[in-house]
Amino acid sequence: MTKMPSDFAAQSAILRLTSDLSGAEPLPAHLRGSVVAIGNFDGVHRGHQAVLKKTLELAKMRQCPAVVLTFEPHPRSFFNPEQPVDRLTDAQEKAAILGLLGFDVVVEQAFDASFSGLSAQEFIDQILIERLGASEVITGVDFHFGTKRQGNPAFLQQAGERHGFGVTLIEPFTDEGGAIVSSSRIREDLAEGDVVAAAALLGYHYTLASVVIKGRQLGRTLGFPTANMALPLQTGLKHGIYAVRFRRADGTLYDGVASFGRRPTVDSDGSALLETFVFDFSGDLYGEFCSVSFFAYLRGEEKFDSLDALMVQMHRDEAEARAILSGVQSLSQLDSYLTFPDVAADAD
């Protein structure tokens, strides 16, 4: 089994292309001629993984680098900044997952006014040929590019024939029920608190990551100290209590129970916060970049009549979460890397 680096985010090979298209350097010579997967890949879900798997297979067969070209910010957030997309994976987490899957480089193209103004042919010339020197491009059959989405798969294939690079188009990936796997479906599941259904589409357990910040420290006085994380306002996960696994920056994993919401018993007017009671841990996590993976929805937020009543329920939540987490199984090798302690221990 492949061992997971203790700080897998830092180990991912990330090459960020400048948004100054006229002055950016091309990929270094040893990375040119690569097989390139193109897409937003938000969530790196099972549908994305079909595109990525084909890319890795071709790169291995041809003994050349495997590269991902992705875009930051998400194009929908660029065009509609007042309603940014609820990202399933931020740039760092996405790059980390792509690194774990086996990619040599993640090329993160700035999606800004200059880039969005490129014509479809300019995208071919400046990005695929001059910058990347791609020998093969892998993408979904619904891929569009260039200003006003003027470039489509047929245009890409014709350009490949003219310029000497191959094009492989992947049909939409469907789940066991025949429905297309998409980031939108996953967001809908998360909005209902159905993290089990979301995990089935992702191929791993949904994960949120952020820096641990200081809170009011009320949990400490109640015997339930929590690691608190502020999340983007657009985070669409249903408010409630969840059984989770908590990963420290060094890769160490702990079981826990997390509350995501506005804490109606103690702080009804507060902004949404992710608070994780980490089982069997004592120490200082402030300032540490950690992640929380969601395994089960336990209950919704409630406003209790007293702190004593809240504490009684918290003990019940802890017992239920421990029972659930003691019996969970990995969904995939990627899920094992991210959320299962035996693999983390092997990496040490």
Rank of each mutant, 00 (worst) to 15 (best):
G160C: 05
S210Y: 02
A209G: 13
K214I: 04
F165E: 07
D189L: 02
V195R: 00
A230W: 13
A159P: 01
I180S: 14
S182A: 11
T235C: 12
L222W: 12
L218R: 10
R220P: 06
P232Q: 06
Y204C: 06
L169V: 13
P172C: 10
V212S: 03
R216K: 00
S184C: 14
T174M: 11
M229R: 08
T174L: 11
T221K: 08
T168N: 10
E171W: 00
V195A: 02
K214L: 08
F224M: 01
R216N: 00
A191L: 08
E161V: 09
I186K: 13
G236H: 14
P172T: 10
A209P: 04
T168L: 15
A227W: 14
Y206I: 01
Q234K: 06
S182I: 10
A200N: 08
R187Q: 00
T207L: 03
V195C: 01
Y204L: 09
G236R: 13
D175M: 02
V181H: 06
K214Q: 10
T226V: 05
L233S: 15
E176V: 13
D189E: 02
P232L: 13
L202K: 08
G164Y: 13
T221V: 03
D189H: 09
I213D: 06
G236V: 11
L169K: 06
A230K: 14
Y204D: 05
G164H: 12
D189M: 02
V195P: 03
A227L: 14
L231E: 01
F224L: 01
R162E: 10
R187L: 00
L208P: 04
S210G: 10
V167H: 05
E171D: 12
K214D: 05
L190V: 15
G219Y: 11
G236C: 15
